[in-house]
Design a protein around this nucleic acid. Structure first.
Lengths: 341, 341
DNA sequence: TTGTACGCGTTATCAC
DNA sequence: GTGATAACGCGTACAA
């Protein structure tokens, strides 16, 4: 490996101080005279010293590593969340070891074990193949984002509130019938609340509504084909009614909008559309789509806040572990664009 | 920090072997009898041993860390590239420390210094604020992706070939006039070749062409407003000609297509459009857009190949450093969809 | 096949 | 203010 690294020992020899003093230069510089600080600083220059943080970690046990496991980066939601989390380096100086997990629980476990071997101080989980019970057993601070989290801390969009806003808007706009299009979301997933809120709100206002919870498929083409069926069905069955359609995400909403445009060449006033996520496609669609915007930056920030707090607590002499997992909900915001009103 | 970790020393005591033997159990298991392997394996279970890779790194100097610096993850190109690179963990078992650099050279330098302090064995750079000369000075294997790379290795899409394919297609389809829409790309950026190839090919075939290289702006709205001007201009000046439009990326192409649809309610046969990137928007547009697909997986794979090779070389007793940086070009593929033919 | 002794680069403890 | 010394957990000659 060429020549060895320059170490504290070299600096010590060069300056006629001890290794301890060199260490103190970095960690408690005030305990040295200015003159000696200057000498050491000079020596570092002269010898071309480079820090070795791994040695530091081994000695003091603080890796400053945080692990992240994300299911993919294909969805804008995940890539943006990752960006925001990584950006927190500027505030907290934790480093991130990132894994993309797409092949199920075994793979994910292997990743976590690897992360543990690198002495991560905390873990952020966006994937959902491992149960929160299993995750909790690792005994380090963990924050789950937008997933089942009975036994660990979590940060989640307030899905109920978001769907309520969307539904209320469609009702205010005097739609004759409300329609919600979604996948068959399992009840334990936070996003299930979008369905609940839609139904609750419709019932509460006595507005007729329909649920289409059969969207599924592995490719865009699959999804699009199904969406076409749903659209045709709706369009035929309610020809003259004003239809308020709340879609589970902006990708769905964009598909639906495209189908409308291809049939009518415009968005007729018998349709109102609301998506969810505020992903780029909502803006780039043929008409900018009204949507419920997840506050990804707030979620990321809250996550880091929670995590850092627990990691710091853990470094104290007498740590007080959390009695119960903390769960935070972040309110989304309605973004009105051109598919409503 | 609760109770200490279980170490080789503990296992050694428990099994009445020496630490060395425990170490060998992991690194050269064949040198132990099966019986003793079993004993140690049992002891690891009993005591709940967890690896500490940081200690291993300190001892043998191989961190198995690779640093990545990416400008953002907003663009699908970057997030997909990151995904592909991270996925290579399955093949090579290198771990990735990821930084997003958006605030210029000082920030980026700080990140690299931090990465060096964690003893990364290699670096992948997708950002372009630091010169390749500066990067080369760090004396570790570095691969640049799609950026200036005079003094370091690089992997790049064959932009010339891609633009040539796009242009040729439009010529084959008998467009009367060819139009290229792009930002004012600096010559040193690889993507500049797209402009060259477009011009060369048009000239070669004696086809009339126009260049619109004035797209710029900080927001989608800005860009869209400019694209509207360009569209109006083109649409008015060449009313009856068949216009073959090659756009610098799929986002531009989608904007242009939306503008056409909003005016005509369809894509008239006086227009053909080709984008670049094969990003999701090309598929999700009102009409699926013909585009030049960057082979992101191939680029990522080539990058890791190159990097791993150099990192391995560096671990040998007598490393032979590269005489000159290696530059690889990956051919893109034409993806024919519904905006041509 | 197994063990001894030391090194990796830094921090922590205690003494001066 | 400064220094010796012992950790931190693992790898590796070299010896046996």
């Amino acid at each position: 490996m060429g020549k060895k690294q320059v170490t504290f020992a070299d600096i010590a020899e060069y300056t006629h101080f001890s290794k301890t003093t060199i260490s103190r230069y970095f960690n408690h510089p005030d305990s040295l005279t200015l003159e000696n600080q200057e000498k050491i600083s000079q020596a570092l220059e002269d010898l071309g010293y480079k820090k070795n943080k791994l040695a530091k970690v081994l000695a003091n046990g603080k890796s400053e590593f945080i692990g992240i496991i994300v299911p993919n980066l294909y969805l804008h939601y995940y890539s943006e969340m990752l960006t925001q989390i990584l950006s927190s380096y500027r505030d907290y100086h934790y480093k991130f070891l990132v894994f993309v997990s797409e092949y199920g629980p075994e793979e994910e476990q292997q990743y976590i074990d690897e992360l543990m071997a690198y002495q991560i101080e905390g873990l952020i989980v966006l994937s959902h193949t491992l149960s929160s019970e299993k995750l909790a057993s690792y005994q380090i601070p963990i924050i789950a984002i937008e997933r089942e989290a009975d036994h660990i801390c979590s940060v989640t969009t307030d899905n109920y509130m978001g769907a309520l806003q969307a539904t209320s808007l469609l009702i205010r706009d005097k739609c004759d019938i409300l329609i919600h299009i979604n996948a068959d979301v399992p009840k334990e997933i936070p996003a299930y609340n979008r369905i609940c809120a839609f139904e609750d709100t419709c019932k509460e206002h006595g507005v007729p509504y329909e649920l289409h919870l059969d969207v599924s498929g592995d490719s865009y083409q699959d999804l699009y084909a199904q969406m076409r069926n749903i659209f045709t069905n709706i369009d035929e069955r309610h020809p003259n009614k004003k239809k308020g359609v709340f879609l589970a995400n902006d990708t769905y909403a964009n598909m639906f909008l495209n189908l409308i445009f291809q049939k009518y060449g415009c968005l007729p006033d018998t349709y109102e559309l609301v998506g969810f996520d505020n992903s780029p496609i909502a803006n780039e669609a043929i008409l900018p789509i009204t949507t419920i915007g997840q506050q990804i930056n707030v979620i990321a920030h809250t996550t880091m806040d929670l995590l850092v707090q627990q990691m710091e607590e853990r470094k104290k002499r007498k740590p007080t572990p959390l009695a119960k997992p903390i769960h935070k909900q972040i309110a989304p915001v309605l973004i009105r664009r051109e598919t409503t009103n």
